[in-house]
């Protein structure tokens, strides 16, 4: 028991520092955002489109869900647990097929594709899983190199260069982590390696399943900024599933709120904050 009490005291003492650090981070974000190009106008071409998608297993999961993510946008899907947020990502990846409706990736309907064709379409997308889903029998290097080995003819030197570049992009020191196994990394590092693996093939679309869940506030900030950096510097279109409202407002160009199997709000974060809809107010009140 004693060490616990001591720890708590330590934490209390530290929390002041943490709050200061968060303020600093937010300030850093504000500075970065300041240099942002003006938010892209509506006319960007649609990259991901869900049209009236419904899906049921034993019971309905999604009903008549539609939204569009245009080029360079970051659409954040929020909602309570178990409302089908991750299912939406699996539909986009065509790991699941909807019962009705269409899912368009780059204007191509992915629902009627065969398994092999779907494997090809997935190469346009990088996915970051909730638990990072790194292959635990492979080193960090092998993990990030995996999509390159599978789908490109790059030589070993090029692969290594690309892996190092991606690890640097996600603020990891390549020399330090490259030989490590995923089990030797912290949660935040695993997430970052997951992002590096997702973007190894330079996909035009990135999908994130709860990228910040289970992370401390500082690492949450780091990951959020990383997602924004990816969108800003590489212009990728992103779909993020999250229930961390604070990071949602920092990175979203559009927010989709799922409730009772349907999308009850789709629009800019500003509109969401301004709405009078009771459920949305309640949801944001959880902040």
């Amino acid at each position: 028991m004693k060490p616990d009490v001591k720890n708590r005291r330590d934490t209390d003492r530290k929390s002041g520092h943490v709050r200061a650090a968060i303020r600093q981070e937010l300030a850093a974000d504000a500075r970065e955002e300041h240099h942002d190009p003006a938010p892209q106008a509506e006319e960007g071409k649609p990259v991901i489109e869900m049209q009236n998608v419904s899906l049921a297993f034993d019971q309905p999961i999604l009903e008549d869900v539609s939204f569009v993510a245009r080029e360079g946008e970051t659409v954040v899907i929020v909602g309570e647990s178990g409302t089908g947020k991750s299912t939406t990502l699996k539909l986009i990846l065509r790991l699941l097929v909807p019962d009705s409706g269409r899912v368009l990736v780059d204007g191509e309907d992915v629902t009627p594709l065969t398994f092999e064709e779907a494997l090809k379409v997935r190469q346009k997308m990088g996915m970051v899983f909730q638990g990072a889903a790194l292959f635990d029998s492979l080193t960090v290097f092998e993990n990030v190199a995996y999509p390159l080995r599978e789908h490109t003819d790059l030589g070993e030197d090029d692969i290594e260069a690309r892996v190092r570049e991606k690890l640097q992009f996600v603020d990891l020191d390549p020399d330090e982590v490259i030989e490590k196994l995923p089990s030797e990394l912290s949660g935040g590092m695993r997430k970052r390696v997951g992002i590096a693996r997702g973007m190894a093939n330079n996909p035009e679309i990135m999908l994130y399943d709860e990228p910040t869940s289970g992370l401390d506030p500082l690492t949450t900030g780091t990951i959020t900024r990383l997602i924004m950096k990816l969108q800003r510097e590489l212009g990728v279109t992103s779909i993020v599933v999250s229930h961390d409202i604070r990071s949602v407002f920092r990175m979203a160009t559009k927010v989709a709120l799922l409730h009772d199997r349907r999308i009850v709000f789709f629009g800019s974060p500003e509109d969401m904050a301004a709405t009078e809809e009771p459920y949305i107010r309640d949801f944001l009140g959880g902040l």
Binding site: K90, L93, L95, F115, E116, L119, K120, R122, Q123, M125, M127, F129, Q130, G131, A133, L134, F135, D136, Y146, P147, E150, H151, R197
Partner: peptide
């Protein structure tokens, strides 16, 4: 364990059967 930690989904996503 690969299945429950989503590594199988990850393989699928990375374009591997």
């Amino acid at each position: 364990s690969m299945k429950v930690t989503e590594q199988i989904d990850a393989l699928n996503t990375l374009g591997t059967d």
